[in-house]
Design a protein around this nucleic acid. Structure first.
Lengths: 94, 94
DNA sequence: AATTTTGGTTTATATTATAAACTACTTTAT
DNA sequence: ATAAAGTAGTTTATAATATAAACCAAAATT
């Protein structure tokens, strides 16, 4: 039967972020912004949501004197992503 | 690169409807309601949206004296679904 | 020293999803 | 015959979500 899709992941931008984070050790805000083609505001909000869900870890530091936001997917995030993909397959495979 | 996902299909209920319709010649409202586990109101609204986009065809008739709503996916709908799935793969494969 | 750029956050608005309330008719029970 | 319950939906109000506009602080550029 059709399983429910995690609403936190069923969002183009958040799914894009998670997909990108799966492929790297960690990623900077500006890199994610470029890769996802999003606005800074939108990305900021969505990163917060993923972070509050424990799907990613966000570290705010400085690169010299400029703020630097770095994101990393968590174990919980990887699991959620895998579950999401598995459930999604019920919708798209056949 | 990550392609945009058709917002009309990127919705659990509408995607579920389309997925179900792909597997049958046509389907009744009540069958879709059961299979998708949705409320009648929500389903009604989402079927309208799919219909207005030309992704499905909705025929309202009678079964004896009871109203009968029948849905069928269109060529345009099949194409949109296929495109959606292909774009989605960019997010979930790797 | 004014302007632009960088790297964001906050907040307001537009869009979307969902459920509650309603309509219209039918069937069943009294 | 009529009241109550069921069927098959639609309309509308509300809750949730996504998105962008406005903003902030510091740094770099002209």
């Amino acid at each position: 039967m059709l399983k429910d899709l995690d609403p936190l992941l069923h969002s183009q931008l958040r799914l894009g972020v998670m997909s990108l984070l799966l492929g790297v050790d960690s990623a900077e805000f500006t890199w994610l912004k470029e890769k996802t083609n999003s606005t800074a505001g939108n990305l900021s909000v969505q990163l917060d949501k993923l972070s509050e869900a424990g799907y990613i870890e966000v570290v705010k530091s400085f690169s010299g004197k400029k703020p630097l936001t770095t994101c990393k997917i968590t174990k919980k995030g990887i699991k959620a992503f895998e579950d999401y993909v598995n459930n999604l397959k019920g919708y798209i495979n056949n």
